[in-house]
Each structure stands twice: as C-alpha cells, then as structure tokens.
Nucleic acid binder design. Structure first.
Length: 354
RNA sequence: AUCCGGCAUUGU
C-alpha cells in the first residue's frame, strides 16, 4: 500500500494526475486497500485534474472506511470540492466537518472570493469567529480582497481596524490589499494613508497605489507616482507598465484633440505614452505579450490610430482583448467602416466576438 | 517540510 501511495503521489506531483488515478485502479486490482494516506494523495489528484465525479466516489468510499475522520483527509476532500468548483458540495461538507482548522477556513473563504462570491465569504467569516477561530493575516488578505471587489468600504474599514488591532496592518501584503480595497471603493485618501504608513514598501504596494490612482481617474497623480518610483529605485515590473500606460490612456480620453501633422491627436498624452512605451522597451518588458493590448488601447485613446494598428498587427497571438481594444480604437475615432472590416476579419480568423 | 494570501490589459 505504501508503495502504491508513493506512486500516486509522484504522478500527481509531475502533473500526471490521470495516471495517478489509473495506478489506483491497478492497486485495487492487486487487492490492496487504500489507507488514509492513499486517500490524501487521491484527493489531491482529483483536485489537479479536476475530476469531480471521481472525487465524489472516493469521498463516499473514504466515508465507508472511516478515513474521512482524519483531519488532513477531511481538508483534502474539502479542497477537492473547492478546486472542482463545486462550492455547494464544499459548503455542505465543510459544515459537517468535526474539526475546522484555520487553514480550511482560509481555503473556504478564498474559494468564495475566487468565484466572485465575496458576500458569502464575509458571511462565512462571521461564522468562523463565532466558532472561536482567530483570523490570520491570510484571512485578512482574502476578506479585504472581497471587500475591494464589492467596493464595500464599510466592511473593509471594519476589517482594517480589526487587522490593525492584531498588528497585521503593517504587513506588506495586507497593506497592498488594503490599498486596493480603498482604491476600488473610491476612498483614495484611505489608500494614500495606508501607503504612506507602510513601513516596508515593495513593488506590489507601489503598483497597488498606482492602480488606485488610475482607477479613480487621477492620471496625473499616477504619472507623478511613477516618476517617484524610479527616483526611489523601485524595481519596476511589467505590471507597473500595464498600469501606467492605462493612466496615459485615461488622460488621453479626457484631453482635447489637436491637429498634429493633419491628424486629430491627443498630443500631450500621446507624447507621454510614447515615452513610457520607450521606457518599457528599454527594460525589455515588451516580450511576453501582456503589454501589447494595453499599448493598442493607449494609442487608440490618444488618437494615434496608425500606431495602434501597427502594434495590433504585430501581436503574435491576438486574443479577444486585443480585438476589442482595436475595435474601440476605431469606433472612438469615428471610423465605423474600419471597425466593421475588423469585425469581418475577426470572423475569418474564427474569433468569436463577445 | 507541504496545503490557504497582495498589484494587471479591451468592452459591457
């Protein structure tokens, strides 16, 4: 049994979870009965695939053998349901668990948030506290993220106070989540306060602050922060550029058109955008593709249709976002004909408009 | 030791 379990674990870890389940069949065939350890490995395999049907069968079998009373196995079953996106099953199972560890609570909460069920996560949190389980900084990050998505400033503020009391508010990761939460809730001052009080800022906290400015339409402040990042010697990332280019696009939308070489352009934003584009190139952030879509959108919003077009054509793997960005560049520009042409081309390349 | 955690592009 021990060897079979090792084989199953090994297959799962190498990303061959299907083979893990096949080995289990072989193991049964040879007359071996699964131990709790085997179940652990099997549920991990089901999570990986993910295979809900097998997971359910195994769950039933584990119950029959009494293996499900083991805390670790219980957690594995629980995670299996979560990762197979069977939230209802997960919730039912979770409610029936005799021992709920902090880790299982965090898994539950995070799965709710990932699936857009932030409210549910907050409800479960009340339950968690009444169960006498104390939240960790993981818990706060998960819940604050939920508040950000819901733009629930009230709950977010309560959690912030609570996190502060427990000494979690100065944690860098909690801090970034707080900044994002305040940013998405429109409380830019709250975001700035958290950012200003962070003892150790890393790129992510800077990016979070930058993103908060952009989302709330403070393009100039964002550009200012971008400069400050460079002065402070922060190691910029590709994401930094995604965000700061969005700031340019934002400014471009607001700027009045002016004629440049006979073309209607948002000249100021356009030049800033170009400069940032050059920065990104210098830092070799243009490969990988994630900046392409943002650049197309930015140039489009600055009135630089030709550059947007040029970049669009150079994208190796155009996804739906690339097409949408190019389409809205044309329509913003009042070029309905080209937009329609693009739509036709889209269908030719068997892209389905959403 | 392992499993739960932060910032990301288009349109709506």
């Amino acid at each position: 049994v021990f060897s079979w379990t090792s084989i199953i674990t090994a297959y799962t870890e190498c990303g061959h979870a299907h083979d893990a389940l096949t080995s289990y069949q072989c193991m049964l065939h040879d007359g071996f009965e699964p131990s709790p350890h085997t179940f652990l490995a099997l549920f991990n395999a089901c999570s990986r695939i993910p295979d809900l049907d097998q997971g359910r069968n195994l769950h039933a079998y584990a119950c029959m053998k009494g293996s499900d009373s083991e805390v670790s196995v219980g957690n594995a079953i629980f995670r299996m349901y979560l990762e197979c996106a069977a939230v209802v099953d997960a919730e039912n199972f979770f409610a029936s668990l005799p021992v709920r560890t902090l880790l299982s609570w965090n898994s539950m909460l995070s799965a709710c948030v990932d699936q857009g069920q932030g409210k549910k996560a907050l409800q479960w949190y009340t339950h968690m506290k009444s169960d006498g389980v104390e939240p960790s900084h993981y818990t706060f990050i998960i819940l604050l993220k939920a508040c950000g998505r819901l733009a629930d400033l009230k709950q977010g503020g309560i959690l912030h106070t609570d996190a502060r009391k427990r000494g979690y508010a100065s944690d860098g990761m909690v801090g970034s989540t707080l900044i994002t939460m305040y940013g998405k809730s429109g409380a830019i001052v709250g975001a700035e306060d958290v950012f200003g009080e962070l003892p150790h800022r890393d790129v992510v906290s800077w990016n979070a602050m930058l993103s908060a400015y952009v989302e709330q339409g403070f393009g100039e402040k964002a550009l200012h922060l971008y400069r400050q990042m460079q002065e402070d010697g922060v190691e910029l990332t590709q994401r930094t550029y995604v965000i700061v280019l969005r700031a340019c696009a934002n400014l471009g939308e607001k700027e009045e058109v002016r004629l440049l070489d006979g073309l209607a352009m948002k000249t100021v934003s356009y030049h800033i955008g170009q400069a940032i584009h050059a920065d990104a190139r210098k830092r070799d952030f243009l490969s990988g593709g994630f900046l392409h879509n943002t650049l197309v959108s930015m140039y489009g919003k600055c009135g630089a249709i030709l550059e947007a077009e040029h970049l669009f054509k150079a994208i190796p793997h155009r996804d739906i976002v690339s097409w949408n960005a190019m389409l809205s560049a044309y329509t913003d520009h009042g070029d309905g004909k080209k937009a329609l042409c693009l739509l036709i081309q889209m269908e030719k390349e068997s892209m389905i408009p959403d």
